[in-house]
Design a protein around this nucleic acid. Structure first.
Lengths: 148, 148
DNA sequence: CTTGCTGCAAAGTCTTTGCATGTAC
DNA sequence: GTACATGCAAAGACTTTGCAGCAAG
């Protein structure tokens, strides 16, 4: 079942309304691929219908989060980013130097996840963000490392 | 050498001034222990001198960060938190349910760190924040897991 | 005394909220 | 037709900036 169909069913089953704005926000998450900011999502939506307000995007993202269709992730730069729950099964590598975010296979996090659960009973989220310096930035700046 | 002495030397060597405000912000970081918000640091400072402005705290924290004396960490809740660089050698476990943050030994992160460096050339920060559900919240809410 | 730092106030950014209008059902 | 959702505008939270006076060196 497609995301759109899930959205329609979920909304209907709760007595909520299926509006073009809600469908467009969901579509924007699809088209943008992953971890998009509210600003980016809004820009994407208004390419289709320029009257959609940013507050509606905020409200819709909050709704999609509650319905379990979207996931909110803070990459550590203070900007909330959203992606489809269907994209959930991966982590992120964020470079504090260039800001780029690369996807990370869950398998790469499994050992840590198992360890934290066994040692502390702590259930790590799947879409964990790992922060550090990417290969490019490490090479470009040599020994210099900003204190972040 | 104490943190205060490092601050004084570092400032002097750069031709910057040693002011009571700067010393008080550093002292507040000491007293608060770890990962404190700007609000908490400001409150701590004004217990000693109530005329210190929050903008000065912001500017001073930015300065301490540049000097390498303090570390800024976003725990994923949108609020920047600061701690002394001397406290740096640990990670954090943050529970998205109750918001509590527990320290995490670096040893627990070593395997992942080595793996990311070997596999992707990615240098993970020492004070990585791991997000998930703590033992208490997992037990309290059973199977229910908010989509975060 | 000179220059950098501070307090104050104002502005900026991102997000949330109140309310009348519009629209899905 | 009846609620719920939207657009607009205003307010809120957090942070940054401009500037005149103050104070460290």
């Amino acid at each position: 079942m497609s995301c759109e169909a899930v959205l329609v069913e979920t909304l209907r089953s709760r007595g909520m309304r299926v509006t073009p704005q809600r469908e467009m926000v969901l579509a924007a998450l699809h088209e943008l691929g992953g971890h998009s900011s509210v600003e980016e999502i809004h820009q994407q939506v208004i390419t289709k219908s320029d009257a959609v307000d940013k507050s509606t995007v905020y409200r819709t993202l909050e709704l999609l989060k509650e319905l379990g269709l979207a996931i909110e992730t803070d990459m550590g730069d203070g900007i909330q980013r959203y992606e489809l729950a269907a994209h959930r099964a991966h982590g992120h590598l964020r470079c504090v130097c260039c800001g780029r975010v690369a996807p990370l296979e869950l398998a790469d996090l499994d050992a840590l996840k198992d360890h934290l659960l066994a040692a502390f009973g702590f259930a790590m989220r799947d879409h964990q963000v790992i922060v550090g310096f990417c290969q490019n930035c490490r090479q470009a700046q040599g020994g210099r490392r900003p204190a972040v």
